[in-house]
């Protein structure tokens, strides 16, 4: 199964990646080649096989409900591209 330019635009939008229209065709081609490689998986019948999400079937460890983190706002906000009044600033969010 190969993908077309529309698919690539849709994926790029989902992934929030701007795509240069001049490069669209190249993306489509490379991604299709990768998908061809990936589709070798179809050689094997996997009916009845349990999906494996983790390399080991371990159990989640639960931690005690305790406040262990201190306020480090100033340290963290310094990393932000834009901040004011203790807030991270982003272009206007419209509901």
């Amino acid at each position: 199964m190969s993908i077309n330019n529309d698919d690539v635009e849709k994926i790029a939008h989902l992934a929030r990646l701007a795509i240069d229209p001049a490069q669209l065709e190249t993306y489509t081609q490379t991604l299709s080649e990768i998908l061809d490689l990936v589709e070798q998986m179809n050689e094997v019948d996997t009916d009845g096989i349990d999906a494996m999400a983790h390399p080991r079937d371990t159990e989640l460890r639960l931690r005690a409900d305790a406040v262990t983190e201190e306020n480090q706002r100033d340290k963290y906000l310094k990393l932000a591209p834009a901040s004011e009044n203790g807030l991270f600033l982003v272009p206007k969010v419209l509901d």
């Binding site: 939008h13 992934a15 929030r16 990646l17 701007a18 795509i19 963290y76 990393l79 932000a80 591209p81 834009a82 991270f88 982003v90 272009p91 206007k92 969010v93």
Partner: peptide, 23 residues
């Protein structure tokens, strides 16, 4: 581009900021 790291210099709106920053 919200809390740390690179943010594109110019953008029209939030979606544009995301897409350009990541591209």
């Amino acid at each position: 581009g919200v809390r740390y790291g690179y943010r594109t210099a110019e953008f029209e709106d939030l979606l544009d900021m995301y897409k350009k920053t990541r591209a």
